[in-house]
Write a protein that binds this DNA or RNA. Structure first.
Lengths: 232, 232
DNA sequence: GCGTCGTTTCGGCCAGTACCGAACCATCGC
DNA sequence: GCGATGGTTCGGTACTGGCCGAAACGACGC
């Protein structure tokens, strides 16, 4: 019985359009200032303050104060996953027919995007599949980076071994992709791969949102390093 | 921008304690009458009517009118999954340490339960693992029933081949189990397995909720058919 | 037919909350 | 020091929406 109230109060956090807009904006994994979120959601700063308090109190967001700014970000991967899950359910249920899906989620988002801090969409799934095919990733029971996967991450991608030390966060985990209905690589390794791709200029954000596209350098790298050819 | 309002209106469906209680009750996969749901949630029948209208309009529930009764059930597996996902996030984040989890979800629910229409909890995971080990289920890329799995379902379990004809619904799919953090068998096959177990008296519901336990017949069957010994 | 019972509609009450503007506070740049 | 700017607090307003009881509706059993 008490769990009904827990469920309700969690859902209530996202049940307001202003708060929902803020959370969706934060899905890009970056930290936003309170003012930016207020402007994005189209409300007065004072109103935004109240909403942000609620979201923090509810455990969905964390804050970091710095000078006169207050930076907000999602509390963690599970908060991001929750919002992704929920927003995925707003897509029309019935037919995942190829042609129809173009109308539901933007084509760019389906092609590639960041999901909190790792890659998702067709691009994310392609990278995950290629890593699995190359023996870098083992999906036979859960998600696990193989020994050669670690070599690849530190050698080919140039990560330092300390980047891959799992703390509270698992090195690799699967994240269900709702546009592709497939799992893709998340966890520490997923974040580092995404970070490296962005840092190397292999992928670039489209506008200010979550959608990303491979650059021409990136296409070459994807082909050479992972054998991914047919990415658009 | 408009997707923020979609997200908000979906979340709003579960943002009320009364509606949340109704949805949690319906997670047992059965159809409840409007009156039963009203009593369960502790509100007047008239109040329940309004809530049920909203839930139906929102696509979470479907109704079937029969005589002077109105039967309500969850709209489908994805609706059930949504509610399970969300309620899983109300569990304390930090440590999935063995000892502590006893306090969070009821022990009986963790041991075994129905998740919409298939088995979940340690029991569901055990069955899934045993089927995989026996070569009946292939988890190497998604969830798939093998040829010998089909034989086992029709032969050993006594299902008719027509029971296993996938329509809109996939024969097998994975469903993420939040108490066990593991996938278990869902989809058409998962539902039929659960139905058969219940029908054969191998498992019994504990009280009126979702928790189930294996009967002594069931323990024998699990041991003989799947080699599962250490189920409590 | 007629009462009974499950459900729905309607009217009205009340609490919670989303919103804003104005005043206030703190930090930055100068 | 001083203004400018980001953020918060506070008061007040308006609206949504959850709740009930009474009355109406419709199917059932007799």
């Amino acid at each position: 019985m008490t769990s009904a109230s827990d469920l309700a109060s969690l859902a209530a956090l996202l049940a307001d359009e202003t708060r929902a807009a803020m959370c969706l904006a934060l899905l890009d994994g970056r930290a936003w200032t309170a003012g930016e979120l207020a402007a994005h959601a189209g409300v007065a700063p004072s109103t935004a303050t109240e909403h942000l308090h609620r979201l923090i109190k509810g455990g969905l967001l964390v804050e970091r104060r710095q000078g006169r700014h207050r930076y907000l970000r999602l509390a963690g991967g599970s908060a991001a996953q929750l919002i992704e899950d929920l927003s995925a359910h707003t897509e029309p249920r019935p037919t995942p027919a190829r042609g129809l899906r173009a109308a539901t989620a933007s084509a760019a988002l389906r092609r590639g995007r960041t999901c909190y801090d790792h890659l998702a969409g067709r691009l994310g799934v392609a990278v995950t599949d290629a890593m699995t095919a190359a023996g870098l990733l083992d999906q036979s029971g859960g998600f696990a980076i193989t020994a050669s996967g670690v070599d690849w991450l530190t050698g080919t991608l140039g990560l330092s071994p300390s980047d891959l030390r799992p703390g509270r966060r698992p090195l690799a985990r699967g994240c269900l992709d709702w546009t592709e209905r497939r799992q893709h690589l998340a966890g520490l390794a997923g974040a580092k791969v995404c970070e490296t791709f962005l840092g190397n200029g292999w992928i670039a954000r489209i506008g200010s949102g979550r959608a990303v596209r491979p650059t021409s350098d990136g296409k070459a790298a994807l082909r050479d390093l992972l054998g991914i050819r047919d990415i658009d």
